[in-house]
Amino acid sequence: MNCREALDRVYEFLDKELTPEVEREVRDHLEACRPCGQQFNFEEAFLKFLQARCRTRSAPPDLKRRILRDLFGE
């Protein structure tokens, strides 16, 4: 696997969406290629940051009450 092929799969790799064979090929490439390793680390940090920042919101308490009233007349 060359750099281009590895970098094209960076998100699939981080999202754990690759087949075990392809994942192994990417890992092998990363062990041998420092710049790609850096790029993967950077993207991993970005995804962690992104996910941590936007998974925090909950529905307003009043919404659940409205829905229950709507569905079950409460």
């Binding site: 850096q38 790029q39 950077f42 993207e43 940090a45 920042r53 925090t56």
Partner: peptide, 20 residues
């Protein structure tokens, strides 16, 4: 973006300063 941050911040630490 990494191309821009390569030298000073390859770990992307600047992201941590950005709020929800």
């Amino acid at each position: 973006v990494l191309d821009e941050r390569q030298d000073d911040d390859p770990q992307g630490q600047f992201f941590d300063r950005i709020v929800d």
